[in-house]
Computed example of a mutant assay.
Amino acid sequence: MSRYERWGALLELLAREGRLEVEEAAEALDVSAATIRRDLDQLAQQQMLTRTRGGAVAHSVSYDLPLRYKTARRASEKQRIAVAAAALVQPGQTVGLNGGTTMTEVARALVTRADLHADGDATSLTVVTNALNIAGELAVRRHVKIVVTGGVARPQSYELIGPLATGILREVALDVAMLGVDAVDVEHGASAHHEGEASINQLMAAGADRVIVAADSSKLGRRAFARICPVDAIDTLVTDAAAPDAVVARFTEAGVRVVRV
């Protein structure tokens, strides 16, 4: 287990339990107590938690883990989901991408599709995004036109939010809005932990002919704080093979096409 994987696991334990002791964390992660103490000290220096005698207590940010700590979680599932989601985009389309680890993988899958590589300097795909990391990766691809919203950057997700971002999205039309979400269920629809991110995602969905939600099975049947869109606004849900049949059936009955990979 790498350092970032360990840190992510510790922050998840803290988010769930609220308090963590060094010995129980060492046992849970199968590492030494000295390693856990060092990890907790480093996370405390980054203000990700509050150090206590013998352990740590949760800092509020632990409930919304920074992107760099999420990268290794369900990595294989996210890569399969990304390839399947990217396959739903047609050459020449305008695609909205929000931020997060799954959307980062979708962006990578899109730009490596051979049929989306135009000859010469021609553009074969237009991507509208509020994610700085995605824009940075795609900016060097000559066949992709990148449109980046303005806004204030959230360090947790590298996403731009606020009025400067919403102003751009109100002026563009999308063929496809490809959304990574924190949770999605039939009753509440798609949702996010942060209301600012949800607001941007709402505009992407509202301005698109088609909405595709890409979410691993751990996010299905759950709700997060801020609603993005109702389930009837979602055309396709791309998830992994571990999604329970009963949950998938409910989405299908609600009119959502479900792709499991």
Rank of each mutant, 00 (worst) to 15 (best):
S124L: 04
V152K: 06
D30F: 09
E197A: 07
A25R: 05
Q90R: 13
G221Y: 07
T149I: 13
V176I: 15
T35R: 11
V89T: 04
P66D: 01
R37M: 08
G167C: 03
R142N: 11
A86D: 01
L164I: 00
G207W: 10
T35Q: 09
E137P: 06
I134M: 07
R210T: 13
L203M: 11
A114L: 13
T166I: 08
M103Y: 00
G54A: 12
L174A: 08
A206V: 11
T149H: 01
I168M: 12
K145W: 05
I134S: 04
L65H: 04
R210N: 11
A82W: 01
K145L: 12
A9P: 05
T129G: 10
R257F: 06
A109E: 00
A122R: 13
A33D: 14
S32P: 08
G151M: 03
A215I: 13
A118H: 05
A34S: 14
A177C: 04
A190S: 09
V248F: 06
R51N: 07
E171G: 05
N130H: 15
A87M: 00
G221H: 10
G167F: 01
V148K: 00
P163H: 05
A9Y: 00
G136N: 09
A183W: 04
V148Q: 06
M178E: 00
T252E: 15
D232Q: 11
A118Y: 00
E197W: 03
A26F: 06
D245V: 15
V140E: 14
Y4G: 01
V186M: 08
M178Q: 00
I161S: 02
K219T: 09
G92R: 01
G151S: 07
T166R: 10
R260S: 12
V238R: 01
Q79P: 01
G189A: 09
D115V: 05
V57G: 06
H59Q: 12
E137L: 11
T252I: 08
A82P: 12
Y158T: 15
E23D: 09
G151A: 08
I200V: 15
T239D: 02
L43C: 09
